[in-house]
Computed example of a mutant assay.
Amino acid sequence: MTALPPHRRGVAWVPQDGALFPHLSALSNTAYGLRTHGVPRAEARREAQSWLDRLGVGHLAHRKPGQLSGGQAQRVALARALAARPRLLLLDEPLAALDQTTRAHVRHTLRRHLAEFGGVCLIVTHDPVEAVSLADRVLVLDDGRVLQDEPPSEVTRHPRSPWVARMLGRNAWPGTATADGLELAGGGHLVVAEPLAPGTEALAVIAPEAVSVHREKPTGSPRNVWPGTVREITSGGSRLRLLITSDRAPDLVAEITPQAAAELRIADGTQVWTGVKATEVTVVPL
């Protein structure tokens, strides 16, 4: 490939700053790759306009890059890359400059395109949600070291990094395996259903929806029970996420319904008990 001139390599790249041609409009930027491949001007502009429309910036087609916001310019750069019909698509943080609503829309559009894409796409991102939703294989790097190289479903179920687990919305507690669970690095002990060999450095992953919240100490089946204090309440769609601190365990995020929160009279500062069944804890060796 390196023996070919750049315009014949079939490579499209979206850098973090977009790298749009400042003297061309958004439409001309997007049509540029098609024109270099010999596509007639009218056809190239129609296809370019279609991509701009799909990414929500069609109404900005005649603006120059200097007249676009960062998020708008990033979408134009993505449209330019996709319109060029590349064999290799390189995306460096392609959604980083977008707000949450726009990011979801563009991610959906990009996912649909990649599902039918016949070439190779390499995406660099610091957002695990973006990675597992767009990729068919995820390579997790930490300080230059490969932590995981697996399908997205496996990364989601068994994240091998506290950062990845937390970005995916999971509780992630590092520790050392014992005969019945994990001695936690931050203090405390966690009982698990399938312990690792004693002495193994490991990560315990707990989904927020697996955490039960009570006003009195539970007497049922949870093997892991701690008292705590609600420190933060945030809304996540139809459910509430509670940040609960305790002197007997690391900070814990629980997810409950607004109805349950009302019944428990949950507020910032409320004293509660949390419970996690041993079977709800996934332990991953580090």
Rank of each mutant, 00 (worst) to 15 (best):
K217M: 13
L242C: 02
V284Y: 06
V272R: 13
P94V: 00
R103K: 13
A77H: 03
L68M: 14
T219N: 14
T36I: 15
T2I: 15
Q259K: 15
G199T: 02
Q49R: 13
D53C: 02
P152C: 12
R265E: 13
P227T: 06
R215Q: 11
V138E: 00
D127H: 00
S238P: 10
H214L: 01
L110A: 06
V155I: 13
L88R: 09
G199C: 02
I256H: 02
D180G: 11
R46S: 00
T279Y: 05
L240V: 07
S161I: 06
T125F: 09
V106I: 02
E216Y: 03
T109W: 12
G186Q: 10
V272T: 08
A44I: 00
F21A: 09
L110V: 04
R8G: 05
V57S: 02
T257V: 13
R107E: 14
L34I: 03
L286D: 12
G58Q: 04
T219F: 12
P208Q: 01
N29H: 05
R8V: 08
R145P: 05
E209H: 14
L24S: 06
V230W: 07
R231F: 04
R103W: 07
A19F: 05
A104I: 11
Q148W: 02
L134C: 03
G199L: 07
P22W: 04
R63M: 10
R111E: 13
R215Y: 08
A254I: 04
I244H: 09
A26V: 07
S235M: 12
D247G: 13
L184D: 10
L196S: 07
P40C: 04
K217C: 13
G70P: 00
Q100D: 09
R87Y: 09
V57A: 08
L286G: 10
V39M: 00
T270E: 12
A96E: 12
V211G: 00
P151F: 09
A96L: 04
P195G: 08
F21G: 08
S221G: 10
T156V: 15
A261S: 13
R248G: 01
L60W: 07
L168H: 12
A249C: 15
R160P: 01
A84V: 02
M167N: 13
V164N: 07
L110H: 04
E280T: 12
E232Q: 13
A115V: 11
P40M: 10
L91E: 05
H105M: 15
E209R: 14
Q100L: 15
A26Y: 00
P152S: 10
E93W: 01
R75I: 02
A96C: 09
P162G: 05
A79Q: 05
S235K: 15
Q74M: 09
V211D: 01
R46P: 01
V283F: 06
T279C: 09
K64N: 01
A3G: 14
L110G: 00
D92E: 03
N171H: 10
A79P: 03
K277S: 08
L82K: 07
H108L: 15
A79N: 01
L55A: 01
